[in-house]
Structure formats: C-alpha cells, structure tokens
Simulated assay, not measured.
Amino acid sequence: MSKTKKNEFRPDDFVVYPAHGVGRIVSIEEQQVAGLTLEMFVISFEKDKMTLRVPTARAAEIGMRSLASPDLVDKAMETLKGKARVKRAMWSRRAQEYEQKINSGDLLSIAEVVRDLHRSDDQREQSYSERQLYEAALDRLTREVAAVSGIDAGGAQKKVEAVLTARAA
C-alpha cells in the first residue's frame, strides 16, 4: 500500500465507515498487536457512543471513505424525488438487499433505500423490520447530509423530509 493513500485521512476529518456511517477521526495512533506495531485511525461515532480503531493500511480495503461531495449529496436528494422501486421479491430477500445497500456506505444506494421504504401518512402500515431498515437508512443519509452541509442532524432531517413529502404531494 502506498504512503500517500495512508495519509489521505487526518485527525478531525469526517469519514464514512460502511457499517457504521459518519464518524470523526479523533487521532492516529500506534498500537501493538500480536508483536506488530500497527498504525490505527481512532474513529469516534458520537451518536452511537462508540470508538473504532481501524488499521490505516486497511482503511481503503474496508471501504472507509471521505464524506460525499456536495454534488453527490444533491444527486442523493434527486434520488429521493424518484418513484419508489419495490421489487416483487419476498420481503426477506428485499430486506437483505436493503441491508446490503445501507452497509455499503454508498450514499446513492442509501438514498434508494430511503426512497423505496418511505411511507407518507396516508399509505399502508410498515412492518417493524421495514421501519427499522427505513430508519437506519434515513439516519445514515441525514448524518452525512448534515456533515457535508455543515448543519446539525435535525436540520438535515428536515431537509430530507421536505424532499420526501414534496415527492408524495
């Protein structure tokens, strides 16, 4: 792995870790693991009250990335305006696909899940698992929108919900 790749992220940077969403690099430290000295990114996920240590050499392989560009956030918002695409597959299969999209860390895939699972008040009830997946995707999307736009999570959620309710109208 090249040296330039390793120093792509710096302390205080926001990063997206596929399985957990947006976190902030607190520091880069060395740690002894099985007799080897490994350089680790220490990433804090404030909302989840969790700290993760990721070997710097494996960050790219794991899929850790910088925050989306404002352009990509705009594309994600456009995705939300689209018509929900719900496959006719069994729920367990669809749920698995949604879960994979959410954990891919890909903002557009996450936006697709939010779009496909969003229900306006007059639509049919959502099952518990549908609601869980929707909220997980919405949370990931709003946290990244907040970090990219420099607004708080509440403001980002309003922004996303405004797009979703405009679509439903």
Rank of each mutant, 00 (worst) to 15 (best):
V22I: 09
V163S: 04
K3G: 05
M1K: 06
T4L: 14
M40F: 08
E135F: 05
H20N: 13
T79M: 11
Y134R: 08
A89D: 09
D13R: 08
V26C: 13
H118G: 01
A34K: 15
Q157Y: 12
V148R: 02
E130G: 09
L67F: 10
K87W: 13
D116N: 15
S69D: 14
Q126M: 13
D74H: 11
R131K: 05
R58T: 09
E78G: 11
Q123G: 04
A137S: 01
Y134M: 06
T165K: 06
V148K: 05
G35Q: 08
S104K: 00
E8T: 15
P18C: 04
T37I: 14
E161A: 12
L80R: 01
I151Q: 11
K87L: 15
G155N: 08
E144A: 06
R10A: 13
L164C: 10
R24T: 11
D139A: 02
I110N: 01
K87Q: 12
S109E: 09
R115K: 14
F41W: 08
R65E: 07
T56A: 11
T4V: 09
R24M: 11
A19M: 08
L117F: 04
E61M: 13
T165E: 12
G155C: 05
N103H: 11
L108R: 07
E39W: 04
K49Y: 02
L117C: 04
V16Q: 03
I102V: 12
D13K: 11
I28W: 07
L138D: 03
A19G: 12
A136S: 12
A168Y: 06
A95H: 07
H118F: 15
G35P: 03
H20F: 15
K87C: 06
L67A: 09
L107N: 00
A34C: 13
A84M: 13
L117G: 02
T51V: 14
Q96T: 12
T51L: 10
R58H: 11
K158F: 10
S27R: 15
K75F: 14
I43K: 01
F45E: 09
L133K: 04
I28Y: 04
I62H: 07
L67K: 09
P70M: 10
V113I: 07
L36V: 10
A156E: 03
A60R: 14
E130M: 05
L38Y: 09
H118M: 07
E30Y: 11
F41K: 00
Q123C: 00
V73C: 06
V113G: 02
L141G: 00
A168I: 10
V16K: 03
K49R: 13
L133D: 00
R53E: 15
K158T: 08
Q157A: 11
R85H: 14
E30A: 11
E46G: 13
V26Y: 12
D116P: 09
K159W: 06
I151Y: 03
R124V: 06
L133M: 07
A68K: 05
S66G: 15
Y134H: 02
L164A: 08
T165D: 02
E135W: 01
